[in-house]
Structure formats: structure tokens, C-alpha cells
């Protein structure tokens, strides 16, 4: 099985050629073009002169855009943290569920992927808007409470004020957490499921309670899984476009929305390209940090 590619160069080359060509034509080439654009400037409506200027990058890290980068990182970070807090117990529960239930629970986690993101986001709008299901439910409770208050002779509660749940940062984070939770749960589950159960039993056997076992044994050993879950959640959340666009308000635009505007409405491709590459470099840095951390933490072997 351990046959080296060196012994079958022709076969290896044949197998590699098609995917390699695909990657070059549809991934590397467009990236290089966009990268080149980032060093150019507009000439007229459609012409771009690649002059080697760093002007676009200078603009990209100007305070106005830097702020949006920071805000995007903050929103993505908050999303990741919430996903971790929510996802860890879920992953733990699935790990310890009966074998038959496990399959179904994992299916439930993956089910949202089968629905288009746009449709899911519109569904969220229907839930969150002023006349949405949340406010309808609250209003029903409010009225019920009011009737109850009247019944026991308290003064009425007054008119129901619907909560502003949509078109603000809250809605964006909620939407991002909703979309990205499976990305967190799956790697966490993979890490926890690999854990040698006898390690947990050993901890209990030595007198530790469940909480200590969780904090001293489970979490440290699941650290590589936590790191990959964090990364795999943070990166797409950082570049999120649709969710802030549809659920956010005027102050909740993220960097991807700015990039989109440069390419479309502002028709400033060179600047949009520069912003894209700054975002990409940030992502690389995040991956590099994760790789360094992963090297430091010991392998979670039994």
C-alpha cells in the first residue's frame, strides 16, 4: 500500500493532472488576477491599469476601513465564542448518547446544510421581524398576563411594545451563530468521540466529580478539536456576507459587505481587491496561530 509516487510517476501525473488543471484555471488564475488588480487603479469605467501602486492597501488600512475590519473580527469572535459555549455541551451530549440516537442527532445537526442559506436567512427574518413569530408569541403572553392581572385586580399592563430584533448587531450575531453552529459541533464531536472512555472512568475512579473530570480531563484532551472548531467557525464568520446584509442594520456591515460594494456599486475593483487580500492575510494569520497552538498541545491519544 505504501507505494511511493516515485515508482509510478506516469500514473501519479495522470491522476494529478485533471484536478491540478482545474485548480490552476478556476482558483489560482482568478486569484492572481484579483491580486494584480489590487496594485492597480481605475482608468475610465472598465479599464484597470496595473501600476504597482500600494495606494489601495494604504486606503484599506485607513481608520475608516480598519474599524470595519476590527468590527468584523469582533463579530466573528463573538460568534465563535457563542458557538463554542453552545456547541460543546451539544457535542458532549451526542458523544454520550446511545449509538442509535447518535446517528439521528448528528443528522439533526447537519440538516440545516440541506437548505439554502438564503432561505434559512429569510426564515430567520420571519421569526425576528416586528410582526414575527417571537414578537407574536411575546404579545400573546403579554395579553394573557394582562388578562390575568385584570382578573386579580391589578392595573392593566398597557399596550404591547414589540421588541426590535431585526436589523441590528444582535440579529447579525444570532444569524451567524445559527449558521455556524454545525461547523463547531462537528469537529468537537469528532474530538470527543475519539476520547478514550477509560480516561474519564479513571478520573472518576480516582475520586474526581464530573465537573473536575470535564475541566481537567475532557477539555484539555479535546483541545485540538476545540482549536479546529474555533478556526473553522471563525474564518467563514469573518468573511460573512449574506447574514449581515440581510439581518444587519446600517451599523452592522462587515468587511465582506464593503468588498461587495466596491466590486459592484462603487465599481472600484482595485480597492475591493486590496480589501479582499487584507482579509485573506488576516485569515492566514489565524490559521498560522492555530497551527502553532496545535503543535504545542499534546496529541489527544489514549
Amino acid at each position: 500500500m505504501e507505494q511511493s509516487w516515485k515508482q509510478a510517476k506516469a500514473v501519479f501525473a495522470a491522476a494529478l493532472a485533471a484536478p491540478l488543471a482545474w485548480l490552476v484555471v478556476f482558483f489560482v488564475a482568478p486569484m492572481v488576477i484579483v491580486w494584480a488588480f489590487s496594485f492597480g487603479q481605475n482608468q475610465g469605467l472598465t479599464e484597470i491599469a496595473i501600476s504597482g501602486t500600494f495606494h489601495n492597501y494604504a486606503r484599506a488600512i485607513a481608520p475608516l476601513y480598519l474599524q470595519i475590519f476590527l468590527k468584523s473580527a469582533w463579530v466573528a469572535g463573538l460568534t465563535t465564542a457563542l458557538c463554542l459555549v453552545l456547541g460543546f455541551p451539544v457535542a458532549l451530549a451526542i458523544t454520550f448518547a446511545a449509538d442509535r440516537a447518535k446517528t439521528w442527532l448528528l443528522l439533526l445537526i447537519m440538516l440545516p446544510f440541506w437548505t439554502n442559506l438564503l432561505i434559512r436567512t429569510y426564515a430567520l427574518i420571519a421569526v425576528l421581524r416586528t410582526e414575527g413569530y417571537v414578537n407574536m408569541g411575546l404579545e400573546w403572553l403579554w395579553k394573557g398576563g394582562g388578562a390575568l392581572a385584570a382578573l386579580v385586580g391589578l392595573k392593566p399592563l398597557g399596550a404591547f411594545q414589540p421588541l426590535e430584533l431585526l436589523h441590528n448587531n444582535f440579529a447579525v450575531v444570532l444569524g451567524l451563530v445559527y449558521v455556524h453552529l454545525p461547523f463547531m459541533v462537528l469537529p468537537l464531536y469528532a474530538a470527543l468521540d475519539r476520547l478514550d472512555r477509560s480516561l474519564l472512568e479513571a478520573s472518576l475512579d480516582l475520586g474526581a466529580g464530573h465537573l473536575r473530570t470535564l475541566l481537567r480531563v475532557v477539555v484539555p484532551l479535546a483541545l485540538p478539536g476545540i482549536a479546529s472548531g474555533v478556526l473553522i467557525t471563525f474564518i467563514p464568520a469573518l468573511g460573512a456576507y449574506l447574514t449581515p446584509d440581510l439581518l444587519g442594520g446600517p451599523d452592522s456591515q462587515m468587511i465582506a459587505n464593503v468588498i461587495e460594494r466596491q466590486f459592484k456599486r462603487a465599481n472600484d475593483w482595485p480597492f475591493g481587491a486590496a480589501l479582499s487580500f487584507v482579509l485573506m492575510y488576516l485569515t492566514f494569520i489565524a490559521v498560522a496561530i492555530q497551527a502553532v497552538l496545535a503543535k504545542r498541545t499534546p496529541e489527544a491519544r489514549g
Binding site: L199, E201, A202, L206, V217, L221, P298, A300, R301, G302
Partner: peptide, 17 residues
Amino acid sequence: NKRPINMVFQSYAVFPH
């Protein structure tokens, strides 16, 4: 964790971290 008994596991279950 409340029993005056300790165990040596078949896989040893030594905490790797």
C-alpha cells in the same frame, strides 16, 4: 468517586496531557 477502591485499567488510562 465515593468508593474506597481504585482501579488499574486494561488500557492503563494514564492521562496523556
